[in-house]
Every structure is written in C-alpha cells, then in structure tokens.
Design a protein around this nucleic acid. Structure first.
Lengths: 246, 246
DNA sequence: CGCTGCGTTGAGACTACTCAATATCCGTGG
DNA sequence: CCACGGATATTGAGTAGTCTCAACGCAGCG
C-alpha cells in the first residue's frame, strides 16, 4: 500500500464512481486548498470531542476512526475511515465536535482550513455539492451501522463490516477487495461492533468456522464473496456508487 | 400543538438556535422552492429504499421516521423526524435511497423539488451551507444512536431518546420539553432502540420505576430532568445549538 | 358485540458480558 | 541471539441482558 504522490488520488478515485462530472478546474481548486500532508503515528487523537476545529482532514494513507467515549470509559467507534475519506468534513459546517477522531494506524493526513473551504463554497456550487455528498455517504454508512448494531448478531455484523471495507477499499483504488490488511486490534473491532473484545474474538472465530473468510493476523481474505454477502445481508446501494468499482 | 401557518416556521425556529445569520432574502428564496403542503395519514411510506427520489420533504406537522428493513422482516428505525426536520434532504445529493421514510402519525409535509434545490445551491452559498448543516446535525444524531445501540442498556438508551426528543421539540418551538406527546407504539419504539417490543415494554416499566419520568398512554412527562439526563448520559452538544432553546 | 391492534406478563432459551487466567506475538535491550 | 515485558489474542465459567413464544387484558371501532 504505497503512498500516492497525489494526496487527492484516493478521494478522486472514489468520486469518479459516484459523480464523474468533476472538472479539471474543480480539481485544481480543491488541490489548492489542501495543504501539505502531515504524518501521524498510530493511536493519536487528531481532534477531541467538544473541541472547536478550524480545519478538516483528508486521509491520504492509513486508517483512522471517529469515536465517542462514555463516562465509564467504554468507547463506541462510530466510523472507520480509509484513504480517500474526508474524515472531518463534518466539522466544517458544524461548530463544536460531538466526537473525537483518532488514527488507527500511522497515517498521512491532508488538512484543509475551514476558511479555504468556505471560500470554495462561495465560488464552486458544484464542488460544494460533491463535498456535501461525501458527508452524506458517511451518513448512509452510519445508518448501516445503526442497523447492524440494532439488528444483526455479532458475527453477521462483523461480516457486514468486512464487506463494506472490501468495497470501500476497492473504490479508493486500494487492492481488489478479495484480501486486505485489517489493521485494527480485536479490542478496537469490538468498540466498532458494540461488543467486548472477548466477544469480538469469539465472533471472529465463529466467522472463520463458516469458511467464508480467512483471517490470519491482520490479513482478511474473502474466500466466498457471495456467501459472505448473503451472511451479512450486504447491499452496497448505500455506498452510492453509480458504477461498479474495479 | 396547532399547525403553523408558515410551513417553514419550525425549521426557522431550529435554525435560529444554530445559525442566526439567515437573511430575509434567503428565507424568501427558500420559501419559494417549498411547494404547497400535503397531508398524509399515519403509517404511510413517503419514499421506499432503492427508489430514486426527485424531491425532498420537510416535516411541517407530525412525526415520521426513516427505516431499513432486513430480509426476515425485522426493521430498524434509523431516525425520528419531527416538525422542522428536512427529513429527506439526504436524497438530494444522494441518488438512490438506501432507506425508506414513513409517517408515524398523520403528517403535513412540504415537498421541495431537487431541481429547485439545485438551482438554489447555485446562487445561495450561505443557504447551501445551512442546508448542508441540517443534514450534518442528522448525522450527529445518528452517531448518538450508534453509541446508544452499541453501548447503552435498553432503559438508558430509552432515557437518552426521551432527552433528545424533548430538546428537539423545544428547539422546534413545540412545547417546553417537560412533557410531550410521544406518538409511537411500543413496537415502533423497539424498532428504534434495536430491541423487541416486549423488551421495549419492560424498558419503559423499568424507567417508570426510577420515577424520573411519567409515561401514561402517549404522554411522556419528565419529572426530573437532571436525573434523566444523568441516567442517559445525555450531552446536547451534538445537536449543535449555539444558544439554549426557550 | 366481536374484531383487531396494542400493551402487559411469564417462562425458558440464547446472546453477550464480566472476570480471570493463559497463550502468543513482537519490539527492545542485553 | 536470547530474555524480557507489554500488548494482543484466546479460553473458561458464571452472570446479566435480551429474545422467543405464548398467553391474556384492554381499548377503540365498525
């Protein structure tokens, strides 16, 4: 998973499957507001809940997540972000952060000042709608997580997450989706699935026993995509892709 | 809870607490694209998943919800919408619906054609950001639901929902939030909380026993706001209010 | 008056949790 | 190269929360 030379590359890769009507001028305008890329180690908070953010972060390389902590220390991860995700575009129209953002792996992040984004929305209505769109895809993903947390047993929800990330990674131009690096610990996975790390471990074992995926160390390999999709009831409509990735 | 003469009134009431910088001209522009109000009975689908929508709905009166069904018939409600909510602004930038929308009570709904919204975004960048903002508040609410479904026991999550709706109703100018009509059946409540209707009933009873709320028929009365807020770990930051309602 | 939908209750089963122990991996320093 | 320590993964046993199935009560309505 080499670094792209163009920090916008994974974002544009995803966009090309959602709305291919981006002009060269728009790309240039966006490129201009994306400041230089910064590197972060794993497990570093980029923004904390209740902070006031004045820039938005685009993931160029690595995984990060948004999360909300409860008073007793339990943590719920509300989103997982991969390269190409504008992880914190939400903080642009919103004022105070209602959640925190943190790296799951070493990351390279491009920051965009809110002032620059605001200026951009003044002049570029089409590009503005695309940025809006990308926050709404995030929201659609959140809805699926709500369904998973509310209705799906742990193993099925885990299968759904694996499907989702496979497609999203493929959309971002990272691999073919049949096997990928899954760099989260089982504790973090549990925080995303709303279960304890002990139960996350058991859900993984249960999923392994179905034979639909192989899961060794940090590598997930999808052995039977159709079977996994069926187990998870995974319907990629919510990812808002107009054309098939790959 | 009488119908407002102005279909935009509850939306503007909420907006005034989030971004009071709306100009008269912007209101006029928005008013122009909101078509006449239509009435719907309870339990009517407004939009179905996988449909292609060409207009967005603003709730003027009544409650409705978004939901996603699983194959075995189980349903997860992903959002509850009250007057002032632009229930389906998401369908404007998004193409295919990933979820359905349905009335929970008799409703009056104002429709806005997407073409008109698009035209509006071409000319009114500030208003566009406000519309964007309102979809992001929806997303923030969804995040809290994720936290609730993943981490909170049923009764606590129910308490959180009651707190949330109390504030949101107050923000929309509907009542003082200390007591309100809760027009959902226990089955629907269960679909929102990710539990069965049987367990929803037990969660209600458990909450009643705390003495923090009275819940008779369809009326919820908050007896001890501070106690309820504490039980729910309710922190209204995510509703993005710059000033206190009322 | 008898539907029908909604709320309520009980009993037993299953999912996920807690607590605790053990095993494995991996980076670091000797 | 090996020893060590910390983080991560795995396992077991008992408990708590939630589900399923089934029944019953009550209210509104034709």
């Amino acid at each position: 998973m080499k670094a792209s030379l163009d920090p916008l590359a994974p974002w544009l890769a995803g966009l090309s499957l959602r709305d291919p009507t981006v002009s060269e001028a728009e790309c240039a305008a966006l490129r201009e507001v994306v400041s230089e890329v910064e590197a972060f180690p794993a497990g570093r908070d980029l923004i904390r809940a209740h902070d006031r953010s004045n820039s938005s972060s685009l993931v160029v390389e690595g995984w990060c997540c948004r999360y909300i902590d409860l008073e007793d220390g339990r943590r719920q991860i509300t989103a997982i972000h991969i390269p190409g995700d504008f992880v914190d575009l939400h903080s642009f129209p919103l004022r105070l952060m209602d959640h925190s953002v943190r790296t799951l792996t070493p990351c390279r992040i491009a920051r965009t000042p809110h002032a620059a984004l605001k200026a951009l929305t003044e002049k570029q209505p089409h590009l503005t709608r695309l940025l809006w769109l990308s926050t709404l895809v995030d929201a659609a993903i959140q809805r699926q997580w709500i369904v998973g947390l509310g209705q799906r047993p742990a193993m099925n929800n885990l299968a759904h997450l694996i499907c989702e990330l496979a497609v999203r990674l493929r959309v971002a131009g990272l691999g073919d989706g049949s096997a990928y690096l899954f760099p989260m610990t089982q504790a973090e996975l549990g925080q995303a699935l709303g279960i304890t790390h002990v139960h996350a471990n058991r859900a993984i074992q249960q999923l392994r026993r179905t034979g639909l995926v192989r899961w060794d160390r940090q590598t997930v390999e999808i052995v039977d995509w159709n079977g996994l999709q069926e187990l998870a009831e995974f319907d990629p409509v919510y990812l808002n892709l107009t054309s098939e990735p790959r």
